[in-house]
Simulated scan of single mutants.
Amino acid sequence: MTKLLQEVFNKIEQLNPEIQDAIASRLLTELEDEKKWDSSFVNTTDEQWQKMADMVKQEILNGDITPLDDILEVES
């Protein structure tokens, strides 16, 4: 275990049990989500990646895109 993770666990131990369980639940959910994403990426074939890239290129050519500035807040 890393020092940083140990530090986090030490701090969590000082919290009341309800908060500890809430944090544990969120961490378990996050770990399961990471596992699913890892599995999805590992199992994606070169053909699937190419198909996705072709779809994105076609959407760009068709103008079916939303500029990032419209999605993200951009500081002036």
Rank of each mutant, 00 (worst) to 15 (best):
T2P: 02
T2K: 12
T2A: 10
T2F: 08
K3C: 03
K3V: 10
K3R: 09
L5A: 10
L5R: 11
L5E: 12
L5Q: 13
Q6R: 15
Q6D: 13
Q6F: 05
Q6S: 12
E7T: 11
E7R: 11
V8E: 05
V8R: 02
V8Q: 06
N10R: 13
N10I: 12
N10Q: 12
K11Y: 07
I12K: 07
I12N: 03
I12F: 01
E13H: 09
Q14E: 14
L15A: 12
L15G: 03
L15P: 05
P17A: 11
P17D: 14
E18Y: 08
E18D: 15
E18N: 13
E18V: 14
I19R: 10
I19E: 14
D21Y: 09
A22I: 04
A22F: 06
I23E: 07
I23C: 05
I23P: 00
I23A: 08
A24G: 10
S25H: 14
S25K: 15
R26N: 14
R26L: 13
R26S: 10
L27M: 14
L27E: 06
L27Q: 12
L27T: 08
L28V: 12
E30H: 04
E30C: 01
E30Q: 09
L31R: 01
L31G: 02
L31P: 00
E32I: 09
D33R: 11
D33S: 10
D33P: 00
D33W: 01
K35N: 07
K35G: 02
K35W: 02
K36L: 08
W37H: 07
D38V: 09
D38I: 14
D38Y: 05
S39T: 14
S40C: 06
S40W: 03
S40I: 15
F41H: 09
F41L: 14
F41M: 12
N43Y: 01
N43G: 02
T44S: 08
T44E: 13
T45D: 08
T45H: 04
D46R: 11
E47P: 00
E47S: 08
E47V: 04
E47D: 11
W49K: 13
W49A: 08
Q50H: 03
Q50A: 08
Q50Y: 01
M52G: 02
M52Q: 10
A53S: 13
V56I: 15
V56K: 09
V56G: 01
K57R: 14
K57D: 06
K57H: 10
Q58A: 09
E59I: 00
E59W: 05
E59L: 05
I60W: 02
I60P: 00
I60T: 01
L61D: 06
L61Y: 02
L61P: 00
N62M: 04
N62E: 15
N62C: 04
N62S: 11
I65D: 03
T66R: 10
T66I: 15
P67A: 13
L68C: 01
L68M: 08
D70V: 05
D70K: 15
D70C: 03
D70W: 02
I71K: 06
I71T: 04
L72M: 15
E73A: 04
